[in-house]
Amino acid sequence: MMTAQGPDLEVTVLENREILPGVHSMVFRTHGNVYADSLPGQFLQVEVSPGPFPVTRRPLTIDGLHGDDCVRVVFESVGSGTSMLAFKPVGTSLRILGPLGRGYELRPGGWLLIGGGLGAAGLGFLASRIDCRSVLLGAATSSRLLPLPGLPVLTATEDGSRGTHGLVTDLLGSVEWTAIENVAVCGPVGMMDAVIRQIPERLLGMTQVSTEARMGCGYGVCEGCSLPAAAGGYLKCCTDGPVIPAADIDWERWRGGNT
């Protein structure tokens, strides 16, 4: 599939807040309305520095829109690129390419949203566009739980510091399944795989997962961000995804790393 989305824009950092330790919420003013029609699950590619390094951009999920011309991302300062980004003060000019990729298909009916750790970024944006009946959030510890104000959230932490002591899959027993017709899952591959195995079978075809891969260009040409496809071969995270029907992924190959 070809996608010709998203111009390369010079934007201004309007806000940079550390919302959890090492986790930043950043708002870009785009000086236009390019992002007005962007879908939950789509992403943008941030050019972290105008200098030679890092040589690629950083793909970040769109976490929400502000007004007509602002777009927000949430990211963790983990590598060289995101650490540099975390230090950008308000007023900094950066280039962002987007919106890119396929977002969630916003189907009618009740939705269950399941997030693991920072995979919860973007779920608030999704919830604002669909009939969200329940949100399950899991994280290692309470300081890794992204706030999702106003949503019916159940939480689980591996260290028991908030909510159920355990994994996000331990919350699946509390779900009112009769009200659910769609499922969205976003998190580490092991967590997503565990969720997919435990949700009711009737919902498998209605489950969309937001994937992640090391990405080069972000617009479909470099073939860097491959994900094992159920049909054999590979999908491109950037243009076939990042949001992909769960049934289209070869979970065994993806989970095992024996791809």
């Binding site: 890092p54 690129g81 090391r214 080069g216 860097g224 961000c225 491959s226 190959r253 791809t259």
Partner: peptide
């Protein structure tokens, strides 16, 4: 090739 295919 199987992923990961890129490392920056």
């Amino acid at each position: 090739n199987p992923p990961p295919r890129l490392v920056e």
